[in-house]
């Protein structure tokens, strides 16, 4: 790892001033950044430790739930407000990483984590995300874990987070701050598709800092589920994951939320599939129909064609669980 300077930010303003300088990165949990620095994927000149900023709180607001950017993944997953109001988020968090990593990782850091694509991590391989213009190693390579939605000719990596899939389904809003003040970005628009600039994972502008996330109140607590399919039963990234939330009244679906992980460069919200469920009975037929709609536009590569079968099956399964039918 390259030597770097370390400073501890005493206030939000300090942190913003520091990250305005090139070569400076924020560190909080460090569970991904330290890993990337060890492998030489990133080599900042300076790290700004923000873990002492007062951004850890979890509180109910008039319209929803606010979670500070520095709240630990483990803390959020066990918080009584989260469990009562947004159990889907708790489920998604518990499906990710390991207890030790969840004790270190923060909400903001989870959003900012990079893809786990092998070609991105291996500095001897081509990767447009790590080094624009070098090509995509995965496109013609081992792409079993890769995207089936929204990929570009430059990059077919997926975002690895579980938490963000849950947040995307729950209409969460990311609150960021910068020199121009605060702005709010819907979770579904926080991460971006790779397009011609896969080096950019998200729409956070240079010099901006995530300060928290808000989840609007909803009626999904009773009928939500996070399904994660992986190669071992814990401590592995998703082949496919599904966040499903239903508002069911009199056997009919009033509202539905669906998002997938492991399939795109961002948490993949399934708006059309959600629409198809409204007013329908909460039955397997409705779910299968929604799953079919969700798969429109999917495209597989040499090693991930199974996702074209696994993804719709997982959507149906997650909806069955959410509806309490399993």
């Amino acid at each position: 790892m390259k030597q770097f300077q370390y400073v501890r930010a005493a206030s939000q303003q300090d942190a913003l001033a520091a990250i305005a300088k090139p070569g400076t990165k924020i560190i909080a949990g460090g569970t991904n950044l330290v890993d990337l620095m060890k492998r030489g994927v990133t080599a900042p000149d300076k790290l700004v430790d923000i873990t002492h900023l007062p951004l850890k709180g979890i509180a109910a607001t008039k319209t929803g739930l606010h979670i500070g950017t520095l709240a630990l993944n483990s803390v959020v997953s066990e918080n009584s407000l989260v469990l009562a109001k947004q159990p889907l988020l708790a489920m998604a968090l518990k499906a990710g990483a390991s207890p030790q990593l969840r004790n270190m990782a923060t909400v903001g850091g989870n959003m900012m984590q990079r893809t786990r694509c092998s070609y991105f991590y291996d500095t001897t391989m081509p990767c447009n995300k790590r080094e624009p213009g070098t090509g995509c190693g995965a496109m013609e390579g081992y792409n079993r874990m890769h995207a089936i939605f929204g990929a570009s000719g430059q990059c077919i990596a997926v975002h690895p987070s579980d938490m963000c899939v849950g947040l995307a389904a729950l209409d969460a809003v990311v609150i960021v701050t910068g020199k121009k003040g605060e702005r709010r970005i819907p979770m579904t628009e926080f991460h971006r598709l790779p397009g011609d600039h896969p080096e950019n994972d998200n729409h956070l502008a240079p010099g901006e800092l995530i300060i928290g996330v808000e989840i609007p109140d909803n009626n999904f607590a009773k009928n939500s589920y996070y399904l994660k399919v992986r190669d071992r039963q814990s401590y592995a990234f998703a082949l496919v994951s599904v966040a499903a939330a239903l508002d069911i009244s009199g056997g009919l679906i009033k509202q539905a939320r669906l998002a997938m992980g492991g399939v795109a460069h961002k948490p993949w919200r399934l708006f059309e599939a959600e629409k198809s469920l409204i007013g329908k009975p909460a039955t397997e037929d409705s779910f299968k129909n929604a799953a079919q709609i969700a798969m429109q536009g999917a495209k597989a590569y040499e090693y991930n064609a199974f996702k074209l079968r696994l993804a719709p099956a997982s959507i149906t399964e997650a909806l069955k669980h959410a509806a309490g039918a399993v």
Binding site: Y6, G30, V34, D35, L47, P99, Q100, L101, N103, M104
Partner: peptide
Amino acid sequence: GQCGACTVHVDGHRVNACLTLGIM
């Protein structure tokens, strides 16, 4: 951070020491 052999407690909580910068 992929095996847990380095697990220690920091302020009573288990963490992976391999991904923890000492200075922090």
